[in-house]
Amino acid sequence: MSIRVFLVDDEAKASAILENKLQRFCPQLSIIGSSQDPVEAIEFIRTEKPDLIFLDIAMPTMTGFELIKEFDEPDFEVIFVTAFDHYAIQAIKNCAIGYLVKPVAKEDLILSVHRAVESILNKEMLSKNKQLIANLGVQTFQQKKIVVPSQNGLQFVKIDHIIRLEGIEGYTKLHLVGGISILSSHNIGHFADLLDTVSFFKTHKSHIINLEYIESYLNEGYVMLEENHQVPVSRAKRAEFLNMLKSNTD
Protein backbone atom coordinates (compact mmCIF):
# COMPACT_ATOMS: atom_id res chain seq x y z
CA MET A 1 0.00 0.00 0.00
CA SER A 2 1.38 3.40 -1.02
CA ILE A 3 0.78 6.10 1.60
CA ARG A 4 0.03 9.50 0.02
CA VAL A 5 1.78 12.30 1.93
CA PHE A 6 1.35 16.08 2.04
CA LEU A 7 3.69 18.54 3.82
CA VAL A 8 2.59 21.84 5.40
CA ASP A 9 5.27 24.23 6.70
CA ASP A 10 5.52 27.99 6.24
CA GLU A 11 9.30 27.66 5.82
CA ALA A 12 10.15 26.30 2.37
CA LYS A 13 13.64 25.24 3.48
CA ALA A 14 12.30 23.15 6.37
CA SER A 15 9.77 21.51 4.07
CA ALA A 16 12.45 20.69 1.49
CA ILE A 17 14.73 19.15 4.12
CA LEU A 18 11.90 16.98 5.46
CA GLU A 19 10.89 15.90 1.95
CA ASN A 20 14.47 14.85 1.22
CA LYS A 21 14.63 12.76 4.40
CA LEU A 22 11.30 11.11 3.64
CA GLN A 23 12.50 10.13 0.17
CA ARG A 24 15.70 8.68 1.58
CA PHE A 25 14.44 6.86 4.66
CA CYS A 26 10.73 6.18 4.04
CA PRO A 27 10.35 4.83 0.47
CA GLN A 28 6.89 3.44 1.23
CA LEU A 29 5.56 7.01 1.21
CA SER A 30 4.47 8.88 -1.91
CA ILE A 31 4.78 12.67 -1.53
CA ILE A 32 1.95 14.28 -3.50
CA GLY A 33 2.69 17.90 -2.62
CA SER A 34 3.64 20.55 -0.10
CA SER A 35 2.49 24.04 0.82
CA GLN A 36 3.72 27.04 2.80
CA ASP A 37 0.20 28.52 2.93
CA PRO A 38 -2.20 26.90 5.45
CA VAL A 39 -5.29 28.18 3.62
CA GLU A 40 -4.04 26.72 0.34
CA ALA A 41 -3.18 23.51 2.21
CA ILE A 42 -6.75 23.14 3.51
CA GLU A 43 -8.13 23.23 -0.02
CA PHE A 44 -5.52 20.75 -1.24
CA ILE A 45 -6.32 18.32 1.60
CA ARG A 46 -10.05 18.52 0.89
CA THR A 47 -9.53 17.91 -2.81
CA GLU A 48 -6.69 15.37 -2.89
CA LYS A 49 -7.40 13.59 0.44
CA PRO A 50 -3.84 12.59 1.45
CA ASP A 51 -3.41 9.72 3.90
CA LEU A 52 -0.71 11.42 5.99
CA ILE A 53 0.09 15.08 6.65
CA PHE A 54 3.31 16.43 8.15
CA LEU A 55 2.08 19.61 9.78
CA ASP A 56 4.07 22.48 11.29
CA ILE A 57 2.54 23.77 14.53
CA ALA A 58 3.73 27.38 14.69
CA MET A 59 2.84 29.19 11.48
CA PRO A 60 2.18 32.95 11.38
CA THR A 61 -1.24 33.03 9.73
CA MET A 62 -2.72 29.83 11.15
CA THR A 63 -1.38 27.23 13.59
CA GLY A 64 -1.36 23.55 12.80
CA PHE A 65 -4.03 23.07 15.44
CA GLU A 66 -6.27 25.66 13.81
CA LEU A 67 -5.82 23.92 10.47
CA ILE A 68 -7.03 20.61 11.91
CA LYS A 69 -10.13 22.35 13.30
CA GLU A 70 -11.13 23.39 9.78
CA PHE A 71 -12.18 19.79 9.10
CA ASP A 72 -15.43 18.37 10.46
CA GLU A 73 -14.20 14.83 9.85
CA PRO A 74 -10.37 14.94 9.89
CA ASP A 75 -9.83 11.36 8.70
CA PHE A 76 -6.14 11.69 7.79
CA GLU A 77 -3.11 10.77 9.84
CA VAL A 78 -1.06 13.69 11.21
CA ILE A 79 2.54 13.98 12.32
CA PHE A 80 3.12 17.39 13.89
CA VAL A 81 6.48 19.08 13.43
CA THR A 82 7.69 21.73 15.87
CA ALA A 83 10.86 23.65 16.68
CA PHE A 84 10.01 23.61 20.41
CA ASP A 85 9.72 20.25 22.13
CA HIS A 86 7.63 21.82 24.92
CA TYR A 87 5.15 23.56 22.63
CA ALA A 88 1.74 21.97 23.19
CA ILE A 89 3.30 18.50 23.10
CA GLN A 90 1.19 17.21 26.00
CA ALA A 91 -2.06 17.73 24.06
CA ILE A 92 -0.57 15.71 21.21
CA LYS A 93 0.80 12.92 23.41
CA ASN A 94 -2.58 12.40 25.08
CA CYS A 95 -4.05 11.41 21.72
CA ALA A 96 -1.19 9.15 20.59
CA ILE A 97 -0.62 11.46 17.62
CA GLY A 98 2.92 11.58 16.25
CA TYR A 99 5.21 14.56 16.50
CA LEU A 100 8.76 15.42 15.48
CA VAL A 101 11.11 18.07 16.85
CA LYS A 102 13.21 20.12 14.42
CA PRO A 103 15.82 19.33 13.28
CA VAL A 104 14.19 15.98 12.53
CA ALA A 105 16.36 12.99 13.43
CA LYS A 106 16.39 9.96 11.11
CA GLU A 107 15.45 7.47 13.85
CA ASP A 108 12.55 9.61 15.11
CA LEU A 109 11.25 10.07 11.56
CA ILE A 110 11.28 6.36 10.76
CA LEU A 111 9.55 5.48 14.05
CA SER A 112 6.87 8.16 13.61
CA VAL A 113 6.16 7.05 10.05
CA HIS A 114 5.92 3.39 11.14
CA ARG A 115 3.35 4.29 13.79
CA ALA A 116 1.44 6.51 11.37
CA VAL A 117 1.20 3.75 8.79
CA GLU A 118 -0.13 1.35 11.44
CA SER A 119 -2.75 3.93 12.41
CA ILE A 120 -3.79 4.37 8.77
CA LEU A 121 -4.12 0.62 8.25
CA ASN A 122 -6.19 0.33 11.44
CA LYS A 123 -8.29 3.39 10.50
CA GLU A 124 -7.65 5.15 13.84
CA MET A 125 -7.07 8.66 12.43
CA LEU A 126 -10.52 10.18 12.83
CA SER A 127 -10.96 9.27 16.48
CA LYS A 128 -7.47 10.53 17.40
CA ASN A 129 -7.94 13.83 15.60
CA LYS A 130 -11.31 14.42 17.22
CA GLN A 131 -9.78 13.73 20.63
CA LEU A 132 -7.01 16.24 19.89
CA ILE A 133 -9.55 18.91 18.98
CA ALA A 134 -11.40 18.21 22.22
CA ASN A 135 -8.17 18.49 24.21
CA LEU A 136 -7.31 21.81 22.62
CA GLY A 137 -10.72 23.25 23.47
CA VAL A 138 -12.26 26.22 21.73
CA GLN A 139 -9.13 28.37 21.91
CA THR A 140 -5.70 27.97 20.43
CA PHE A 141 -2.67 28.12 22.69
CA GLN A 142 -1.81 31.58 21.34
CA GLN A 143 -5.24 32.86 22.40
CA LYS A 144 -5.33 31.16 25.80
CA LYS A 145 -5.29 33.17 28.96
CA ILE A 146 -3.99 32.34 32.41
CA VAL A 147 -5.48 33.59 35.65
CA VAL A 148 -3.03 35.61 37.73
CA PRO A 149 -3.92 36.49 41.35
CA SER A 150 -2.69 40.01 42.10
CA GLN A 151 -3.17 42.71 44.72
CA ASN A 152 -6.15 44.04 42.77
CA GLY A 153 -7.90 40.68 42.35
CA LEU A 154 -7.70 38.28 39.42
CA GLN A 155 -6.03 39.28 36.16
CA PHE A 156 -6.73 37.35 32.96
CA VAL A 157 -3.52 37.49 30.94
CA LYS A 158 -3.04 36.34 27.34
CA ILE A 159 -0.15 33.90 27.23
CA ASP A 160 1.31 35.44 24.10
CA HIS A 161 1.45 38.85 25.80
CA ILE A 162 3.93 37.59 28.41
CA ILE A 163 7.53 38.55 27.56
CA ARG A 164 9.12 37.14 30.70
CA LEU A 165 8.50 36.19 34.32
CA GLU A 166 10.72 37.09 37.27
CA GLY A 167 10.73 35.46 40.70
CA ILE A 168 11.00 37.98 43.54
CA GLU A 169 11.06 36.75 47.17
CA GLY A 170 8.32 34.15 46.71
CA TYR A 171 6.28 36.30 44.34
CA THR A 172 6.35 36.46 40.53
CA LYS A 173 6.47 39.59 38.41
CA LEU A 174 5.00 39.14 34.94
CA HIS A 175 6.44 41.51 32.33
CA LEU A 176 3.94 41.99 29.51
CA VAL A 177 4.06 43.72 26.14
CA GLY A 178 3.76 47.49 26.24
CA GLY A 179 5.73 47.89 29.44
CA ILE A 180 2.94 46.49 31.63
CA SER A 181 3.84 44.38 34.68
CA ILE A 182 1.79 42.41 37.20
CA LEU A 183 2.97 41.15 40.58
CA SER A 184 1.44 37.77 41.43
CA SER A 185 1.28 36.06 44.82
CA HIS A 186 2.20 32.76 43.15
CA ASN A 187 5.86 31.75 43.13
CA ILE A 188 7.73 31.22 39.89
CA GLY A 189 7.51 27.43 40.24
CA HIS A 190 3.75 27.69 39.83
CA PHE A 191 4.17 29.46 36.49
CA ALA A 192 6.93 27.09 35.37
CA ASP A 193 4.45 24.20 35.69
CA LEU A 194 1.57 26.19 34.20
CA LEU A 195 3.51 27.24 31.09
CA ASP A 196 5.34 23.95 30.57
CA THR A 197 3.41 23.11 27.39
CA VAL A 198 3.91 26.40 25.58
CA SER A 199 6.92 28.27 24.24
CA PHE A 200 8.62 29.29 27.47
CA PHE A 201 12.07 28.44 28.83
CA LYS A 202 13.36 28.71 32.39
CA THR A 203 16.79 30.30 31.96
CA HIS A 204 17.49 30.66 35.67
CA LYS A 205 15.86 29.65 38.95
CA SER A 206 14.25 33.09 39.07
CA HIS A 207 13.60 33.76 35.37
CA ILE A 208 11.34 32.35 32.65
CA ILE A 209 11.30 33.83 29.14
CA ASN A 210 8.92 33.63 26.22
CA LEU A 211 10.97 32.23 23.34
CA GLU A 212 8.91 34.20 20.82
CA TYR A 213 10.48 37.45 22.08
CA ILE A 214 14.17 36.55 21.82
CA GLU A 215 16.31 39.09 19.98
CA SER A 216 19.87 37.98 20.79
CA TYR A 217 22.11 36.01 23.13
CA LEU A 218 25.17 37.61 24.70
CA ASN A 219 28.31 35.57 25.41
CA GLU A 220 28.35 36.95 28.94
CA GLY A 221 25.36 34.69 29.68
CA TYR A 222 22.41 36.99 29.02
CA VAL A 223 19.53 36.81 26.58
CA MET A 224 18.04 39.98 25.12
CA LEU A 225 14.30 40.10 24.60
CA GLU A 226 12.09 42.60 22.82
CA GLU A 227 11.26 45.86 24.63
CA ASN A 228 14.81 45.98 26.04
CA HIS A 229 14.57 43.12 28.55
CA GLN A 230 17.87 41.50 29.58
CA VAL A 231 17.65 38.17 31.40
CA PRO A 232 20.46 35.99 32.81
CA VAL A 233 21.01 32.42 31.68
CA SER A 234 22.50 30.33 34.49
CA ARG A 235 25.61 28.24 33.83
CA ALA A 236 23.59 25.07 34.47
CA LYS A 237 21.07 26.06 31.75
CA ARG A 238 23.39 27.50 29.08
CA ALA A 239 24.15 24.29 27.18
CA GLU A 240 20.48 23.31 27.00
CA PHE A 241 19.48 26.84 26.04
CA LEU A 242 22.10 27.18 23.29
CA ASN A 243 21.25 23.75 21.88
CA MET A 244 17.60 24.78 21.78
CA LEU A 245 18.46 27.99 19.92
CA LYS A 246 20.67 26.09 17.48
CA SER A 247 17.98 23.50 16.73
CA ASN A 248 15.48 26.27 16.06
CA THR A 249 17.71 27.82 13.40
CA ASP A 250 18.84 24.63 11.61
Rank of each mutant, 00 (worst) to 15 (best):
Glu212Thr: 06
Ile163His: 07
Ser2Pro: 14
Leu225Asn: 02
Glu48Trp: 05
Asn243Tyr: 01
Ile17Glu: 05
Val81Ser: 09
Leu245Lys: 07
Ser15Ile: 08
Ile97Asp: 00
Asn94Asp: 13
Gln131Gly: 02
Ser30His: 03
Leu121Val: 15
Tyr99Val: 07
Leu218Glu: 15
Ser30Lys: 03
Arg238Leu: 06
Ala41His: 04
Lys106Leu: 00
Gly170Lys: 10
Val148Arg: 11
Leu18Val: 13
Asn228Met: 07
Glu227Trp: 09
Glu240Asp: 14
Gly221Gln: 04
Ala91His: 14
Ile159Lys: 15
Gly167Ser: 08
Val104His: 00
Phe201Gln: 11
Leu111Gly: 02
Lys246Tyr: 10
Glu118Arg: 13
Lys158Tyr: 14
Cys26Thr: 01
Asp108Pro: 01
Leu174Asn: 07
Thr47Ala: 08
Asp51Phe: 02
Ala88Lys: 08
Ile159Pro: 07
Thr63Ile: 07
Asn228Val: 05
Pro60Val: 01
Phe241Met: 03
Asn243Met: 06
Gln142Ser: 14
Val78Phe: 04
Ile182Arg: 01
Pro50Ser: 09
Tyr87Leu: 14
Glu166Asp: 13
Ala12Asn: 08
Leu121Lys: 15
Lys49Gly: 01
His190Lys: 12
Ile208Gly: 04
Ser184Ala: 11
Leu29Ile: 09
Ser34Glu: 05
Gly167Val: 11
Thr197Asp: 12
Val39Glu: 08
Tyr217Ser: 05
Ile57Leu: 05
Cys95Val: 10
Asp9Phe: 00
Ala16Met: 12
Thr203Met: 04
Asp160Ala: 07
Glu124Gln: 15
Ile79Met: 09
Gly98Ala: 12
Glu40Met: 07
Gly98Arg: 10
Leu245Ile: 14
Val231Asp: 03
Ala88Thr: 13
Glu169Tyr: 11
Ser150Glu: 07
Ala58Ser: 11
Leu218Ser: 13
Met59Lys: 06
Val148Gly: 04
Leu174Met: 15
Lys102Ile: 14
Ser119Ala: 14
Gly137Glu: 09
Phe241Ala: 03
Ala105Lys: 14
Cys95Leu: 10
Pro232Val: 05
Gly170Cys: 06
Val78Met: 09
Ser185Gly: 10
Ile133Pro: 06
Asn20Asp: 12
Gly33His: 05
Ala16Cys: 11
Cys26Asp: 00
Arg24Trp: 01
Pro103Tyr: 08
Ser15Ala: 15
Glu70Ser: 04
Gly137Asn: 08
Lys145Met: 08
Ala236Met: 06
Met1Thr: 11
Lys69Ala: 06
Ile209Ala: 02
Ser216Phe: 10
Phe65Gln: 06
Phe191Gln: 06
Asp10Arg: 00
Ser181Lys: 00
Lys13Ile: 13
Leu29Cys: 09
Ser34Gly: 11
Ile17Asn: 02
Ile68Cys: 04
Thr140Val: 09
Ser119Val: 11
Ile214Trp: 02
Pro74Thr: 01
Ala134Trp: 08
Ser127Met: 12
Glu43Tyr: 05
Asp37Ala: 10
Val5Asn: 03
Ile110Arg: 05
Asp37His: 09
Ile68Lys: 01
Gly153Ala: 15
Phe54Lys: 02
Pro38Val: 01
